[in-house]
Nucleic acid binder design. Structure first.
Lengths: 119, 119
DNA sequence: CTCTTGTATAAGCTACTGCTAATATGATAG
DNA sequence: CTATCATATTAGCAGTAGCTTATACAAGAG
Protein backbone atom coordinates (compact mmCIF):
# COMPACT_ATOMS: atom_id res chain seq x y z
CA UNK A 1 0.00 0.00 0.00
CA UNK A 2 2.82 2.37 0.76
CA UNK A 3 4.74 3.16 -2.38
CA UNK A 4 1.74 3.54 -4.67
CA UNK A 5 1.80 6.50 -6.98
CA UNK A 6 0.35 9.63 -5.49
CA UNK A 7 -2.78 10.31 -7.48
CA UNK A 8 -4.50 12.91 -5.38
CA UNK A 9 -4.12 16.66 -5.81
CA UNK A 10 -1.06 17.21 -3.62
CA UNK A 11 2.13 18.42 -5.19
CA UNK A 12 4.36 16.62 -2.70
CA UNK A 13 6.51 13.68 -3.77
CA UNK A 14 7.55 10.57 -1.88
CA UNK A 15 10.75 12.12 -0.67
CA UNK A 16 13.52 9.93 0.63
CA UNK A 17 16.31 11.55 2.58
CA UNK A 18 18.95 10.22 0.20
CA UNK A 19 19.08 7.78 -2.68
CA UNK A 20 17.49 4.38 -3.32
CA UNK A 21 19.84 1.42 -3.06
CA UNK A 22 20.78 -1.45 -5.32
CA UNK A 23 19.31 -4.80 -4.51
CA UNK A 24 21.35 -7.59 -2.96
CA UNK A 25 21.87 -10.82 -4.90
CA UNK A 26 19.81 -13.31 -2.95
CA UNK A 27 21.71 -16.42 -4.07
CA UNK A 28 24.96 -14.89 -2.96
CA UNK A 29 23.31 -13.88 0.26
CA UNK A 30 22.05 -17.39 0.98
CA UNK A 31 25.44 -18.92 0.29
CA UNK A 32 27.33 -16.38 2.35
CA UNK A 33 24.93 -16.65 5.24
CA UNK A 34 25.27 -20.39 5.36
CA UNK A 35 29.02 -19.98 5.62
CA UNK A 36 28.88 -17.15 8.15
CA UNK A 37 26.36 -18.78 10.44
CA UNK A 38 28.25 -22.06 10.28
CA UNK A 39 31.48 -20.34 11.35
CA UNK A 40 29.81 -18.03 13.83
CA UNK A 41 29.59 -20.33 16.81
CA UNK A 42 32.19 -21.05 19.48
CA UNK A 43 32.27 -24.77 19.03
CA UNK A 44 32.30 -24.77 15.25
CA UNK A 45 34.83 -21.95 15.02
CA UNK A 46 37.17 -23.77 17.36
CA UNK A 47 36.72 -27.00 15.43
CA UNK A 48 37.56 -25.19 12.20
CA UNK A 49 40.68 -23.64 13.72
CA UNK A 50 41.85 -26.96 15.05
CA UNK A 51 41.16 -28.74 11.80
CA UNK A 52 43.03 -26.00 9.96
CA UNK A 53 46.02 -26.13 12.28
CA UNK A 54 46.52 -29.83 11.68
CA UNK A 55 48.38 -30.83 8.57
CA UNK A 56 46.76 -33.97 7.34
CA UNK A 57 43.24 -34.24 8.62
CA UNK A 58 41.85 -34.66 12.10
CA UNK A 59 39.57 -37.38 13.36
CA UNK A 60 36.50 -36.75 15.48
CA UNK A 61 37.83 -38.43 18.58
CA UNK A 62 40.62 -35.85 19.01
CA UNK A 63 38.31 -32.94 18.42
CA UNK A 64 35.89 -34.21 20.99
CA UNK A 65 38.47 -34.06 23.73
CA UNK A 66 39.65 -30.61 22.67
CA UNK A 67 36.50 -28.52 22.51
CA UNK A 68 34.77 -29.65 25.69
CA UNK A 69 31.35 -30.68 24.48
CA UNK A 70 29.82 -34.10 23.99
CA UNK A 71 30.65 -36.44 21.13
CA UNK A 72 27.20 -35.86 19.78
CA UNK A 73 27.66 -32.11 19.74
CA UNK A 74 30.97 -32.45 17.90
CA UNK A 75 29.40 -34.71 15.33
CA UNK A 76 26.53 -32.32 14.79
CA UNK A 77 28.92 -29.39 14.51
CA UNK A 78 31.08 -31.20 11.96
CA UNK A 79 28.05 -32.15 9.90
CA UNK A 80 27.02 -28.56 9.74
CA UNK A 81 30.50 -27.45 8.73
CA UNK A 82 30.45 -30.11 6.02
CA UNK A 83 27.06 -29.01 4.72
CA UNK A 84 28.26 -25.42 4.58
CA UNK A 85 31.24 -26.50 2.49
CA UNK A 86 33.79 -25.61 5.14
CA UNK A 87 35.33 -29.05 5.59
CA UNK A 88 35.77 -32.22 3.60
CA UNK A 89 35.60 -35.64 5.17
CA UNK A 90 37.04 -39.00 4.30
CA UNK A 91 36.75 -42.35 5.91
CA UNK A 92 39.74 -44.45 6.84
CA UNK A 93 38.92 -47.70 8.59
CA UNK A 94 36.44 -46.79 11.25
CA UNK A 95 37.74 -43.24 11.68
CA UNK A 96 36.61 -40.20 9.85
CA UNK A 97 39.12 -37.49 9.00
CA UNK A 98 38.19 -33.88 8.42
CA UNK A 99 40.11 -31.30 6.42
CA UNK A 100 39.49 -27.62 5.73
CA UNK A 101 38.29 -26.45 2.33
CA UNK A 102 39.54 -23.48 0.40
CA UNK A 103 36.64 -21.45 1.76
CA UNK A 104 37.75 -22.05 5.32
CA UNK A 105 41.37 -21.31 4.53
CA UNK A 106 40.52 -18.07 2.75
CA UNK A 107 38.18 -16.78 5.43
CA UNK A 108 40.42 -17.61 8.36
CA UNK A 109 43.31 -15.97 6.57
CA UNK A 110 41.27 -12.84 5.93
CA UNK A 111 40.28 -12.73 9.59
CA UNK A 112 43.90 -13.16 10.63
CA UNK A 113 45.02 -10.39 8.33
CA UNK A 114 42.36 -8.06 9.65
CA UNK A 115 43.38 -8.60 13.23
CA UNK A 116 46.99 -8.08 12.29
CA UNK A 117 46.34 -4.78 10.55
CA UNK A 118 45.09 -2.84 13.58
CA UNK A 119 48.12 -1.54 15.40
CA UNK B 1 36.42 -41.44 35.85
CA UNK B 2 37.31 -42.15 32.29
CA UNK B 3 40.82 -40.93 31.57
CA UNK B 4 42.42 -42.00 34.84
CA UNK B 5 45.84 -43.59 34.53
CA UNK B 6 45.72 -47.31 34.02
CA UNK B 7 47.29 -48.78 37.09
CA UNK B 8 46.26 -52.38 36.83
CA UNK B 9 48.35 -55.08 35.17
CA UNK B 10 47.48 -54.37 31.56
CA UNK B 11 50.17 -53.25 29.16
CA UNK B 12 47.84 -51.06 27.10
CA UNK B 13 48.29 -47.31 26.90
CA UNK B 14 45.74 -44.51 26.59
CA UNK B 15 45.81 -44.62 22.85
CA UNK B 16 44.44 -41.73 20.84
CA UNK B 17 43.69 -42.45 17.23
CA UNK B 18 45.89 -39.64 15.97
CA UNK B 19 47.76 -36.64 17.38
CA UNK B 20 46.97 -33.99 19.98
CA UNK B 21 46.15 -30.57 18.57
CA UNK B 22 47.46 -27.06 19.09
CA UNK B 23 45.35 -24.72 21.13
CA UNK B 24 43.35 -21.92 19.60
CA UNK B 25 44.16 -18.30 20.47
CA UNK B 26 41.18 -17.23 22.54
CA UNK B 27 41.52 -13.49 21.91
CA UNK B 28 41.51 -14.05 18.19
CA UNK B 29 38.59 -16.37 18.61
CA UNK B 30 36.55 -13.79 20.54
CA UNK B 31 37.24 -11.07 17.98
CA UNK B 32 36.49 -13.27 15.00
CA UNK B 33 33.31 -14.61 16.53
CA UNK B 34 32.02 -11.13 17.19
CA UNK B 35 32.52 -10.31 13.53
CA UNK B 36 31.10 -13.58 12.24
CA UNK B 37 28.01 -13.56 14.42
CA UNK B 38 27.38 -9.92 13.56
CA UNK B 39 27.51 -10.68 9.83
CA UNK B 40 25.71 -14.00 10.13
CA UNK B 41 22.14 -12.80 10.16
CA UNK B 42 19.85 -12.00 7.22
CA UNK B 43 19.02 -8.48 8.24
CA UNK B 44 22.52 -7.46 9.20
CA UNK B 45 24.12 -9.11 6.19
CA UNK B 46 21.75 -7.33 3.86
CA UNK B 47 22.36 -4.03 5.61
CA UNK B 48 26.10 -4.51 5.22
CA UNK B 49 25.75 -5.30 1.53
CA UNK B 50 23.59 -2.26 0.94
CA UNK B 51 25.88 -0.01 2.90
CA UNK B 52 28.83 -1.37 0.95
CA UNK B 53 27.14 -0.90 -2.41
CA UNK B 54 26.55 2.77 -1.75
CA UNK B 55 29.42 5.14 -2.37
CA UNK B 56 29.21 7.79 0.29
CA UNK B 57 27.31 6.50 3.27
CA UNK B 58 23.71 5.47 3.74
CA UNK B 59 21.21 6.82 6.20
CA UNK B 60 18.96 4.67 8.32
CA UNK B 61 15.74 5.79 6.66
CA UNK B 62 16.69 4.27 3.31
CA UNK B 63 17.84 1.03 4.84
CA UNK B 64 14.62 0.66 6.74
CA UNK B 65 12.57 0.61 3.54
CA UNK B 66 14.93 -1.83 1.86
CA UNK B 67 15.27 -4.70 4.32
CA UNK B 68 11.65 -5.15 5.34
CA UNK B 69 11.83 -4.98 9.11
CA UNK B 70 10.86 -2.22 11.51
CA UNK B 71 12.83 0.96 12.08
CA UNK B 72 13.68 -0.30 15.51
CA UNK B 73 15.07 -3.55 14.18
CA UNK B 74 17.24 -1.67 11.67
CA UNK B 75 18.58 0.57 14.39
CA UNK B 76 19.39 -2.38 16.61
CA UNK B 77 21.06 -4.18 13.72
CA UNK B 78 23.18 -1.15 12.86
CA UNK B 79 24.24 -0.74 16.48
CA UNK B 80 25.43 -4.29 16.54
CA UNK B 81 27.36 -3.86 13.29
CA UNK B 82 28.94 -0.75 14.75
CA UNK B 83 29.93 -2.52 17.97
CA UNK B 84 31.47 -5.32 15.95
CA UNK B 85 33.57 -2.80 14.02
CA UNK B 86 31.86 -3.48 10.72
CA UNK B 87 30.54 0.03 10.06
CA UNK B 88 31.38 3.59 11.01
CA UNK B 89 28.71 6.20 11.65
CA UNK B 90 28.60 9.94 11.41
CA UNK B 91 25.90 12.45 12.10
CA UNK B 92 24.85 15.06 9.59
CA UNK B 93 21.95 17.24 10.66
CA UNK B 94 19.37 14.88 11.94
CA UNK B 95 20.47 11.97 9.79
CA UNK B 96 23.01 9.37 10.60
CA UNK B 97 25.17 7.97 7.82
CA UNK B 98 26.77 4.56 7.93
CA UNK B 99 29.82 3.42 5.98
CA UNK B 100 31.60 0.07 5.79
CA UNK B 101 34.92 -0.47 7.52
CA UNK B 102 37.94 -2.23 6.08
CA UNK B 103 36.87 -5.39 7.86
CA UNK B 104 33.56 -5.43 6.05
CA UNK B 105 35.15 -4.69 2.71
CA UNK B 106 37.74 -7.42 3.11
CA UNK B 107 35.31 -10.09 4.23
CA UNK B 108 32.69 -9.36 1.60
CA UNK B 109 35.39 -9.40 -1.03
CA UNK B 110 36.69 -12.74 0.19
CA UNK B 111 33.16 -14.15 0.12
CA UNK B 112 32.65 -12.82 -3.41
CA UNK B 113 35.92 -14.34 -4.57
CA UNK B 114 35.03 -17.69 -3.09
CA UNK B 115 31.70 -17.80 -4.81
CA UNK B 116 33.35 -16.83 -8.06
CA UNK B 117 35.92 -19.59 -7.90
CA UNK B 118 33.53 -22.56 -8.04
CA UNK B 119 32.73 -23.18 -11.67
C1' DC C 1 7.72 27.07 23.38
C1' DT C 2 5.35 23.05 20.22
C1' DC C 3 5.25 19.96 16.38
C1' DT C 4 7.46 16.97 13.31
C1' DT C 5 11.01 13.99 11.63
C1' DG C 6 14.91 10.79 12.29
C1' DT C 7 16.98 7.63 15.29
C1' DA C 8 17.74 5.04 19.68
C1' DT C 9 16.30 2.36 23.67
C1' DA C 10 13.19 -0.67 26.50
C1' DA C 11 10.13 -4.43 27.26
C1' DG C 12 8.17 -8.53 25.94
C1' DC C 13 7.33 -12.45 23.20
C1' DT C 14 8.33 -16.25 19.74
C1' DA C 15 11.31 -19.04 17.44
C1' DC C 16 15.42 -21.00 16.75
C1' DT C 17 20.08 -22.67 18.16
C1' DG C 18 23.00 -25.75 20.39
C1' DC C 19 23.54 -28.65 23.98
C1' DT C 20 22.88 -33.46 26.47
C1' DA C 21 21.30 -38.17 26.83
C1' DA C 22 19.82 -42.01 24.53
C1' DT C 23 19.83 -44.76 20.61
C1' DA C 24 21.20 -46.32 16.00
C1' DT C 25 24.52 -47.41 12.45
C1' DG C 26 28.85 -49.09 10.65
C1' DA C 27 33.30 -51.21 10.82
C1' DT C 28 36.57 -54.32 12.93
C1' DA C 29 38.02 -58.11 16.16
C1' DG C 30 37.42 -62.41 18.07
C1' DC D 1 27.50 -64.81 15.16
C1' DT D 2 28.60 -61.19 19.31
C1' DA D 3 31.23 -57.49 21.36
C1' DT D 4 33.42 -53.24 20.96
C1' DC D 5 34.84 -48.92 19.17
C1' DA D 6 34.02 -44.67 16.28
C1' DT D 7 30.61 -41.85 14.58
C1' DA D 8 25.82 -40.40 13.39
C1' DT D 9 21.05 -39.52 14.41
C1' DT D 10 17.03 -38.51 17.26
C1' DA D 11 14.39 -36.31 20.93
C1' DG D 12 13.86 -32.99 24.08
C1' DC D 13 15.04 -29.05 26.64
C1' DA D 14 17.24 -24.40 28.19
C1' DG D 15 19.00 -20.31 26.72
C1' DT D 16 19.45 -16.67 23.58
C1' DA D 17 18.62 -14.01 19.29
C1' DG D 18 15.86 -11.03 16.77
C1' DC D 19 11.63 -9.25 15.95
C1' DT D 20 7.55 -5.86 17.16
C1' DT D 21 5.35 -2.26 19.75
C1' DA D 22 5.80 1.48 22.59
C1' DT D 23 8.44 5.04 24.34
C1' DA D 24 12.39 8.32 24.70
C1' DC D 25 15.68 11.39 22.84
C1' DA D 26 17.68 14.86 19.50
C1' DA D 27 17.48 18.29 16.00
C1' DG D 28 15.21 21.48 12.95
C1' DA D 29 10.91 24.31 11.54
C1' DG D 30 7.55 27.51 12.71
Amino acid sequence: MIGDAITDGTTEETETCCTPLEDVDSDAMATDLQVLTAMGNDTRYELLRRISNADDGVCVCDLEAAVGVSQSAVSQALSRLYTAGLVTRRKEGSWRYYEPTETTAALLETLDDLRGSHE
